[in-house]
């Protein structure tokens, strides 16, 4: 049926925009080419045409990349997660303590050695899930800022990791557990996680709700979304992914230490932000974060390649993170002015 006999009203066709990821990809290309040119000038060799360097770089960033994927959906929902690095530490300890070989006579649980790999993995993921769900419950139902809730978890989970073996490292995992960190396994795990979360964020209601809550929580609520329940889910998923990262870190290092994952949360947030995930919520994507992660890796391995002092590297890393946020704020302001 037709609502009206009048001519079409003065609501015109709005233009479609290019995907935001394109800009970030251009930044990546630009940075890579800069290092390539500097490489030929300063080192007399190619930066990119070096498979070994590239695989080291990808390995370096993919563990934190797993966390960054979880953090991406948290930031899209308008939140933040500072606890992921500590959750890595806690799950690494717990998972490793259940993955030790029986031939090692000072195992944490002498009666629980040589367990099938599924046990430490399941327990590790569960620990991450619980930590994340606690974050979410506090944020959703007590309305404390995500910054504070996850800061508390950051301190508490790290404390737990240290208490677990009174500071002693845990070593000697079974071969099947160690396989999770062997060679390019972490990269494959990362890619699977990224693919799943990409589909989830784009093609499921879970994803749409996440964007909706980040864009306008009030609007999400009046659209009938249970904002509280969904917030808990978002943080729980982030916790699970931090737990997975903890398992991979421990497997890769063949040992678990309470200090593992320190500062990972900030690197993960940086990857997301560099990848165009807006700290004000509602915008960002897994693809963007993946590009952000590669930019992050290229910068670090590029600096190393140019033999830049490690201290300078950290200072520059800080500057790059701030620059990414400034770019986001600037984009936002421009948008507001236009409308």
């Amino acid at each position: 049926m037709n609502a009206t006999t009048q001519p079409a009203i003065a609501v015109s066709r709005a233009r479609r925009r290019l995907p935001a990821e394109l800009n970030i990809l251009l930044v990546l290309v630009g940075i890579s080419l800069t290092f390539e040119i500097l490489g030929w000038i300063l080192q007399g060799q190619s930066f990119l045409a070096n498979p070994q360097r590239l695989s080291i770089m990808i390995l370096q960033v993919s563990v934190i990349g797993i966390i960054a994927i979880g953090v991406t959906q948290v930031i899209i929902s308008g939140g933040i997660d500072l606890s992921s690095g500590s959750i890595v530490g806690a799950t690494a300890m717990i998972a490793m303590s259940l993955a030790q070989v029986g031939t090692f006579d000072r195992a944490v649980y002498p009666g629980l050695t040589d367990l099938p790999v599924v046990v430490p993995v399941a327990v590790g993921l569960l620990v991450g899930l619980v930590c994340g769900a606690i974050n979410g419950l506090f944020i959703a139902y007590t309305r404390i800022p995500p910054f504070i809730a996850t800061l508390g978890m950051m301190v508490a989970a790290r404390g737990f990791a240290k208490w677990y073996t009174k500071g002693q490292p845990i070593s000697f995992p079974t071969d099947s557990f160690a396989a999770l960190g062997k060679g390019l396994a972490p990269v494959f795990i990362f890619l699977v996680v990224a693919a799943i979360l990409h589909v989830v964020l784009r093609y499921t209601r879970y994803g749409k709700f996440t964007y909706a809550i980040g864009a306008n929580p009030q609007a999400a609520r009046v659209s009938g979304i249970n904002v509280e329940r969904h917030t808990v889910k978002i943080y729980a998923v982030a916790g699970v992914l931090s737990g997975l990262a903890g398992i991979v870190v421990a497997a890769r290092g063949l040992t678990a230490q309470a200090g593992m994952g320190t500062m990972y949360e900030l690197d993960a947030i940086a990857m997301a932000v560099i990848g165009g995930v807006s700290l004000s919520g509602g915008r960002g994507s897994v693809i963007g974060t993946m590009i952000g992660m590669v930019i992050f890796g290229v910068i670090i391995s590029g600096f190393t390649f140019l033999r830049l002092d490690a201290y300078y590297q950290e200072m520059l890393k800080g500057a790059i993170i701030v620059a990414a946020v400034v770019a986001d704020v600037y984009r936002q302001r421009k948008r507001v002015k236009k409308s």
Binding site: V199, A212, N216, A219, S223, G224, G282
Partner: peptide, 26 residues
């Protein structure tokens, strides 16, 4: 205005009622 910025017009209208295919994806 109770709309979600950064999302498309269609996403805003059908939020929570998105059509899904046989795989359960939107």
């Amino acid at each position: 205005l109770a709309l979600m910025n950064w999302m498309t017009v269609a996403e805003n209208i059908w939020i929570r009622r998105e059509p899904r295919n046989r795989l359960g994806l939107i």
